[in-house]
Write a protein that binds this DNA or RNA. Structure first.
Lengths: 142, 142
DNA sequence: CAGCATCCCTACGGATACTG
DNA sequence: CAGTATCCGTAGGGATGCTG
């Protein structure tokens, strides 16, 4: 595995303690080690949010997720699930049966994140017209 | 400019009306045309959030932002500002002076988005320990 | 079934050089 | 000062093929 991993990069932990004080924007970026950046990245990547949202309803197995999502490659589903599992947002359960069965469910932690995300989605729904209008206006001015 | 633009891709607007019904996860992804996806991308890219957060305090000019952000290239600052401006989240004002002066400020719309984002940041701060623990545990199990 | 591994292509984003 | 234009490396992510 030459890629992925969202490296915790041990031995590179000179985060100078930034990111701890509340919403201290001037500091929390630029440094990749920052938690906010990492969580934001996780939530914003192409599939994580979708996967976690799907799992909110009920626990699903790999193939079910694969079919439910439509555009996703099995590679990215694997990668996404591993990341979510690593962050403790999703739980993976393997049933030692003959054709292997693996089930995924959202953890309580994942649920709280999902709740938070909803406010963002709500914001989007409430303002998408404003944004569309702004874009149209901007593009027209070229 | 051969790149960037978050294409409104005209003539590719077959969004089938998805994304309108609230938080209908099963539908809103996979289709790039979705507003939620676009907003999420905007908010999650490397610099947008930081820029908008910096502007919350007071209006700043290009060079001030550049210096304030530290890691950013002037190219990405430009791109980021154009996108934010296009979406109506940030306002750009040009003062026709001899050494040109341009000032940026958050729009009211941008402010409401920032407010929403804060809950995400708060979530991160509240749960970063849990996540760190989960990661450590996961990594240890390899 | 659930996945790892490999190849490969593209978009994101940095560095640099040039204008109004 | 405030950009624009160009070149280019890297990471994200799709397609495909192989295992336990």
């Amino acid at each position: 595995m030459t890629e992925e991993g969202t490296s915790t990069s041990p031995g590179h932990t000179e985060v100078t303690d930034a990111c701890d004080t509340g919403w201290d924007v001037l500091q929390w970026d630029a440094r990749e080690g920052c938690e906010v950046r990492q969580i934001l990245d996780r939530v914003a990547d192409k599939w994580s949010l979708l996967v976690i949202a799907l799992l909110r309803e009920d626990t699903l197995r790999f193939s079910e997720l694969r079919r439910a999502i439509d555009g996703i490659s099995q590679r990215m589903l694997t990668v996404t699930l591993r990341n979510l599992e690593r962050d403790g947002l999703v739980t993976r359960t393997v049933y030692p049966e003959v054709p292997p069965r693996v089930e995924y469910r959202v953890s309580p932690l994942g649920l709280t994140l999902l709740g938070t995300i909803e406010s963002l989605v709500t914001w989007t729904e409430e303002h998408q017209l404003e944004i569309a209008r702004a874009r149209a206006e901007f593009d027209a001015a070229r």
